[in-house]
Amino acid sequence: MRIRPVGAHALLLDCSAPADVAQAALVDAWRAELWRRRERGELTAVEIVPAASTVLLDGLPDPAATADLLRRWAPTVAASSSHAEGAADRMGERESGEVIVPVDFDGPDLPAVAQHWEVDVPAVLRRLTGTRFRVAFCGFAPGFPYLTGLPAELALPRLATPRPRVPAGSVALAGPYAGIYPSASPGGWLLVGRTELVLFDVHADPPARLGPGTRVRLAAA
């Protein structure tokens, strides 16, 4: 873990690791630990923003003092990230329950996913509905959740040519992630289904339905 200053009041934790699974577990462990420390009053930060390999802490009154705290907390976080499954739970994170996302599995790229995984389409659906997903971070578009939980060996390539328009609610796969498009946009992920669940509402609190740390299960509608 490397700590990088960002402007006058922010720090970036770089959790780059040789393996994607280890990296995802380390980022998730840091996110959970930082949220827990902030709730307990041990950390002052306006924003804690996880990404694929980093965690941004913004709104720090004293970044240098916070960096010292992070170095002291690092051994605890590293120990809890040694096993990817359930890392955030072991950090004592307060859970809000699992969100069940009803999905019509009728995506045009299901046959391509089955071919990549060397199984038939029903086996793809069993894998997707049987996986315990967790939102690692949000990005690309407001409320777009990057869901981890699939084995690393099932990572998928993106389309060679992105679609100019992917409908809102599309459930898709790319790389090691599953994701759900909160609004219509261009996209190069493989489409496996669609949901009517509203993922982003600017008038809601919080606006994103599936925020980092949320446990998610895809269920056949």
Rank of each mutant, 00 (worst) to 15 (best):
P186A: 12
F133C: 03
R132E: 13
G86Q: 06
P167C: 00
P164L: 13
D62C: 03
V121E: 15
F105Q: 07
P145K: 05
F137Y: 12
F144P: 02
D104V: 15
A88G: 14
G179W: 02
P207G: 06
R38H: 07
L69E: 15
A10Y: 06
P151N: 08
G97E: 13
V55E: 01
E39K: 11
V124Y: 03
A24G: 14
L43E: 10
V113M: 04
G97H: 13
L156M: 14
F105H: 09
A84E: 13
R38Y: 07
V46R: 14
Y146C: 06
L57R: 03
P151C: 08
E33S: 11
S96H: 12
R38F: 01
A123S: 15
Y177Q: 09
A22C: 04
R40F: 01
A178D: 04
C15N: 10
A45W: 06
V171W: 00
D106I: 10
S80N: 11
D14Q: 08
A160M: 11
H9C: 07
V119E: 12
R36S: 12
W73H: 09
E33Q: 14
G86N: 03
A29P: 08
R4F: 05
A152Q: 13
F105I: 05
R90M: 11
L56G: 10
F144W: 03
R37D: 10
V101G: 00
T214F: 02
V171D: 00
T76F: 14
E33C: 13
E153N: 12
P157M: 03
V171K: 00
A84F: 14
P186D: 07
L11A: 11
G97R: 12
P207A: 15
H9E: 15
V135D: 00
P75F: 12
E47D: 13
C15D: 07
A32E: 01
V135L: 05
H83F: 05
S82E: 15
R71H: 14
S16F: 10
L110F: 03
M1P: 15
A74E: 15
P63I: 08
P164Y: 07
A88R: 14
E93K: 06
L128D: 02
V121M: 04
T129H: 08
P164Q: 10
T161L: 13
S82H: 13
R132T: 14
L70I: 07
A112S: 10
A8H: 10
G59R: 06
A10H: 11
Y181N: 04
L154G: 00
E95I: 05
A25C: 09
